[in-house]
């Protein structure tokens, strides 16, 4: 089986400060991987390098494209990379405001990616938008409302709909449940689990919330100071951590 994305020796420094160093892993279709670590551990840097938002200093990110098979997204041309990020990739930001157009209606937000890949039939675009709003449990009657009138949880769900409408194969998520109420988080996690299962999505989720990765991710990578210190099955890493840092991380979680 060909990995969907194959990351090799990704290194990114900010001057003398190391963002992430020599990170390598393969992600296969249908896998959901969590990346945990404290603030500054390099997990967001790594995510942004993979998603094409940052150019790594060294290393390759080979993605199995639909049309042309495995391609290194670090060295491919910018138009190609941007096309990938509109079609096969999705990026869910921690703050919905960074991932939504706040001045555009919910329907327009969802429809944008469709129009970006050439959809030109208003009725079809709108039907798809309504369908997706319902799939993320937003009342279809809100299709013409702007996201500014939505609650935080709804905005996050709208962001997810907007990202998934073109049927991407890989979703990058940066703290997708950060800043949400616990009850809203649970609903969002449930939704994401269902979508991942039903659409056969692969996902890479950066978070510092171990409960989130336990519920969403099949496998887990633990980062510290820009390095990967442990890597394995999520429940195995959390229940039987091998590395000193992971043991500290797991034992530091407050029990409810």
């Amino acid at each position: 089986m060909t990995p969907l994305i194959s990351v090799k020796d990704i290194t990114k420094s900010y001057g003398a400060h190391i963002g992430c160093a020599d990170v390598s892993f393969d992600l296969y279709p249908g896998e959901v991987m969590g990346i945990v670590g404290e603030s500054g551990s390099g997990k967001s840097t790594l995510l942004n390098c993979m998603a094409g938002h940052l150019r790594p200093d060294a290393g390759s990110v080979v993605f199995d494209t639909r049309g042309h098979g495995p391609r290194d997204t670090v060295t491919m041309s910018e138009p190609e990379r941007r096309m990938l990020s509109r079609t096969d990739w999705a990026f869910v930001h921690q703050h919905a405001r960074d991932g939504l157009r706040m001045g555009v209606s919910a329907g327009g937000n969802v429809g944008e990616r469709l129009m970006a890949v050439g959809a030109r039939h208003y009725g079809d675009i709108r039907d798809k938008a309504v369908d997706w709003l319902e799939r993320v449990e937003i009342d279809a009657g809100r299709v013409d409302d702007r996201p500014t009138t939505f609650s935080g949880g709804m905005q996050q769900r709208l962001q997810i709909a907007r990202n998934l409408v073109t049927g991407p194969r890989l979703v990058f998520m940066d703290e997708p449940t950060g800043g949400l109420d616990v009850s809203v988080q649970a609903r969002l996690l449930d939704l994401l689990r269902g979508l991942v299962r039903d659409m056969g999505l692969s996902a890479i989720i950066v978070t510092h919330d171990l409960a989130v990765v336990r519920l969403l991710a099949n496998r887990l990578m633990v980062m510290k100071d820009g390095q990967v210190v442990e890597n394995g099955l999520t429940d195995q890493v959390l229940d039987d951590p091998q590395h000193a840092y992971t043991q500290l991380l797991v034992s530091s979680v407050l029990q409810v």
């Binding site: 509109r86 209606s105 990616r113 469709l114």
Partner: peptide, 18 residues
């Protein structure tokens, strides 16, 4: 430069929806 004009149709979409 990259001919990414989907956004232009978003404006027209917004018009029709409103």
């Amino acid at each position: 430069s990259l001919e990414e004009y989907g956004l232009m149709h978003v404006k027209l979409y917004e018009d029709i929806s409103r």
